[in-house]
Amino acid sequence: MGETFQTLEDSTGEQSVAVILSTSLGDIEVVVYPQRAPLSAGDFLDYVDRGLFKGAAFYRVIRPDNDAGSPIIEAIQGGLLTESPPTEFIAHESTQQTGIKHLDGSLSLARREVGTATAAAFFIIIGDQPSMDFGGSRNADMQGFAAFGRVVKGMDVVRAIQQIRETSDEGPFVKGQKLSNPVAIESVKRKD
Rank of each mutant, 00 (worst) to 15 (best):
K191Y: 02
H92G: 07
T82P: 11
G13S: 08
I126P: 11
F58I: 02
E166K: 06
Q177D: 01
P71V: 07
K189I: 03
L39A: 13
E186T: 13
N139S: 13
E74R: 14
T4M: 05
K178V: 11
R60Q: 14
I125E: 15
E9K: 12
V32E: 04
M155I: 04
Q129E: 15
D65G: 04
A41S: 12
G176R: 03
F173C: 00
P71N: 11
T87P: 06
V17I: 15
A117C: 10
F123C: 04
G176Y: 01
E29G: 00
P130V: 12
T87A: 12
R138I: 08
S84F: 07
I124Y: 03
P85V: 15
A146I: 04
N66C: 08
S168N: 11
V152H: 05
L109P: 07
R63W: 03
E14P: 01
D43Y: 00
D49E: 13
N139C: 11
P64K: 14
D27V: 09
I72W: 13
Q15N: 10
S22M: 14
E113W: 02
D10V: 07
G13A: 05
F58R: 02
D156P: 14
G154F: 00
T12H: 01
K101L: 14
G127S: 10
D156F: 14
D128Q: 02
G2R: 12
D156M: 14
K54D: 11
Q77C: 11
E14G: 06
L107W: 04
K101C: 07
R138S: 09
R50K: 15
Y59E: 04
A121K: 11
A117W: 04
